[in-house]
Design a binder for these strands. Structure first.
Lengths: 228, 228
DNA sequence: TAGCCTCTTGACGCGATCTTGACGTCGCCA
DNA sequence: TGGCGACGTCAAGATCGCGTCAAGAGGCTA
């Protein structure tokens, strides 16, 4: 699953890109301005960022600089401007690629693929969350139990754990979890969550009957408590 | 010192690029056609390759494919052609960037800098990976078995092994593997992976039926575990 | 041209995973 | 105290994904 963050102030472009990317199996976040982009990037850790240069508020180049202070995520720049100085500025600020509007969707998708391909080679972010009972390695998609042996999680189990662990201490609503893992049409199937949270607890909690890390907030959702 | 290989059949473009690059402190090799390019790349190991698509003899896209069989060097494509299909083909063949002629020298230099920047991040790799059962030499593209004899891998097998071994412990998704080895149009052909992983295990695993090094994560992908 | 190697493609069986429904438990509130 | 809603547990059938085998196509080499 590849997560793409699209930053553009024109709603129709945002919509078009989202539609095309989702159709290709990407998970898409969108932001209409620089502030939202930096915020979303920090929270969702996208695998690729597509950013328009002409943004209200923070300039696109500033967004690139902001991202580059803490992440090496591939950045593809969109721009209506042909001026060479613009391109040089964006690339030197840390962008990986530069596409001039109007652009073909096929080309953009190919450039996204090229970015992904490179990212496999470079991606070594330290994304490890430790508790007394287990260790979650988000980059390697691996969970190590208390006895140092790997814990096998199924894709669905892993997906849930990943969402919860990426938001330590925060309450994640049932709807959010269902929508993210099973899709928007499953928002009512709360029994799925019950079944899978039980399985996750059986595999990770020291006392599955008395959860310390994966806490139920009745009527609301679930929460991952790193300190147990 | 950064070494750049420029491939173009027009002498004046070659001259222009060489002059500009040398002025910026790059060391420049030039090749007028695909054969010379592949030969020079093998002998000089450039840090960046700039290649024109419209070459006599071997096509530019073929040059990219040829390079990609053994090196991850950044490749920047130059082309007079605007057609989107051209761009998509070149990028999917393994190019990192695509610039349409006429282009500004400042832009090209900025793109070269962007490529260099990325390459630095990836450069710190261990060229030899050892396990109890076999040794993979990434630089020499060779695998030595437990009995000290060389193991023959086909190109496709090697490609898969290389990707997995370069990311020890990390889960590599089926999509990433398929896209990298067979191209973006094969993202659904998971049976290719099944066939080739079986062959790789037959050649490398002590007990092919009980893989210790090349682990399947059902529904997600594969993982190379160096410690077995 | 013949032979070999590699890649592609389809089919099959098995085990793991997902889905689904039923039931028990707990806490809250009338 | 009884009822209700929400959660946890369990089990069983359906489905999916993986490993395996084998046959055929294509290309390279001798």
């Amino acid at each position: 699953m590849t997560r793409v963050l699209v930053v553009d102030d024109e709603p129709q472009i945002l919509r078009g890109l989202r539609t095309n990317l989702v159709a290709r199996g990407y998970v898409v976040d969108t932001a209409p301005d620089g502030e939202a982009a930096l915020d979303l990037a920090a929270r969702r850790h996208p695998d690729v960022v597509i950013v328009d240069l002409g943004l209200p508020g923070i300039d696109g180049v500033e967004v690139i600089r902001g991202l580059r202070t803490w992440t090496a995520v591939p950045i593809i720049v969109l721009s209506a401007r042909e001026q060479e100085a613009e391109k040089v500025d964006a690339l030197d600020a840390g962008a990986d690629d530069y596409v001039t509007k109007p652009f073909g969707m096929g080309e953009l998708l190919a450039r996204v693929r090229a970015s992904e391909r490179r990212a496999i080679a470079t991606d070594d972010e330290e994304a490890v969350v430790r508790t007394a009972a287990f260790t979650v390695d988000l980059a390697a998609k691996k969970v190590i139990g208390a006895d140092e042996t790997a814990v096998r999680l199924t894709p669905t189990e892993w997906h849930l754990v990943e969402i919860l662990v990426r938001h330590p201490g925060k309450l994640v609503s049932q709807r959010q979890l269902l929508q993210e893992v099973w899709g928007p049409r499953y928002e009512e199937e709360t029994n799925y969550l019950r079944v899978y949270m039980a399985q996750i607890r059986r595999k990770l909690e020291p006392e599955p009957a008395r959860p310390r890390y994966f806490i139920t907030e009745p009527g609301m959702g679930y929460r991952f408590e790193p300190s147990g």
